[in-house]
Amino acid sequence: MRSSLRSLVAPLAVAMALSLSAPAIAQQQQQQPSSVNPTASSVQERQLLEALRAGTPGTGTTLHGRITIPDTNASNLIQPQGQAWRSVHQGLMHWIAAIAILGMLAVLVLFYLVRGKIRILHGISGIRVLRFSAFERLVHWMVASCFIILGLSGLNVTLGKFLLPQLFGEGVFATFSQWAKYAHNYLAWPFMLGLAFMFLMWVAHNIPGRIDIDWIRRGGGIIGSDHPPARKFNAGQKGIFWAVIIGGGTLSLSGFYLLFPYYAGGVLGGQFWNIVHGVAGVLLIAVIFAHIYIGTIGMEGASEAMTTGEVDLNWAKEHHSLWVEEERVKASIHPQAPQPAE
């Protein structure tokens, strides 16, 4: 009898214990996830941003973590200036590039449709005049070819990921971007060398003067049919020259700091020079489009100056009359030696 009573009490006690512990177990199961999450207790980005916004307005305070290495910059968790840089690089830069480059292309197309090709008014004379030496043309094409590759590879950094993967696939885009980066880094050096030679060769001919004001006032032969006098370089060409020298110099300086960020002045300096490099690049690309237009389809006889080095005499008289007179004076002072009779 006692043993049967004991057999009935034991299951009742177990059942009562389970019923009392069931709410606690259920509550514990609700509090703990079914799988282990090693980052569940870590700080989320949203909390960091809220802490950043809660700081003193306008101070630009950087959120820091704890580190055990000497480099204090490694403790930066969020840098407000980095957020601003990303906004400019991924937003405003695209608008600057689109307005500058596409806007210039639209203007050139409209100008060609309205003005057409600028012809040699008196026709081709057949007499050739040396305008640029072989060395001058070599320097020009070294700078030009480097700039074309630098411009395309630079635009790939800013805009490539939004266009090329959809057209050619991510694998092709990745391979192209890698080689474009190598080309951009190494071709910067011959580009800078060519800029230095270009400055030394032509700076004396590109000093602005009163004659340039008259050239601009009369439209420079581009607007209308009037051809104001000009020396070796007219006001328009002087503008291109200084745009290349100043813009190329800015690209060279900022590019140096991007290649060697140790000298850029920290993260903030690198972000600053990155924006300067991008803006200078797209603006110079737009200027070069205008230069290419005038030197090719925009003006008859202009392309020969940088291909064969010689131009037609009538073209030279119409666009650089004072330079032609200067060359005639030089020829009269230093006549060619007579050739011996055979």
Rank of each mutant, 00 (worst) to 15 (best):
A305Q: 14
G220K: 04
S35R: 04
L283S: 02
G82M: 04
R66K: 15
Y262N: 05
G270F: 06
A17T: 14
A204H: 08
I246E: 08
I333M: 09
S252I: 09
A302L: 02
L102Q: 06
D226I: 14
V276C: 01
Q336R: 15
L253Q: 12
V244Q: 13
A316D: 02
A24Y: 06
A243D: 00
A13L: 07
L322I: 00
V88R: 01
A341K: 13
P190W: 13
F272R: 15
R328Y: 04
P338Y: 01
G281N: 03
L105I: 01
I292C: 07
I69R: 06
G248E: 11
G309H: 09
R328A: 08
I288H: 00
F132T: 01
E326V: 07
Q79D: 15
A302I: 04
V14G: 05
I222P: 02
N206G: 09
L163P: 01
G298P: 02
S42C: 13
M93A: 03
A230Y: 02
W323H: 14
S3L: 06
P228Y: 04
S7N: 06
R231N: 14
L18S: 05
I216V: 12
G265W: 14
L102F: 13
E136C: 04
W242C: 13
S133A: 06
S87Y: 15
P23N: 13
Q237K: 11
F173I: 07
G281H: 01
G169Q: 04
H291F: 11
P190N: 11
K232T: 01
Q47P: 00
G160I: 08
L195T: 13
P208K: 00
V43I: 14
A54N: 08
G221L: 00
Q237W: 02
A341D: 07
I213G: 10
P261V: 06
M104R: 00
P38Y: 02
K232Y: 03
L48C: 04
G309R: 07
G103D: 03
E300G: 11
L102G: 02
I120W: 00
S332M: 12
K117P: 05
L150I: 15
E45A: 08
Q178V: 14
D226V: 12
H94M: 04
P335I: 03
D226G: 00
A174T: 14
T62D: 07
W323Y: 05
I213P: 10
Q237C: 10
S254P: 11
M201Q: 15
G255K: 12
R2W: 10
H334Q: 04
F197Y: 10
F272C: 00
S145C: 01
Q31Y: 02
R86F: 13
R119Y: 02
K317Y: 11
S303Y: 12
R86D: 14
Y182P: 00
Y257L: 15
I96E: 01
G220N: 04
H319L: 03
Q90E: 13
W215L: 02
V114T: 05
V203L: 11
G194A: 10
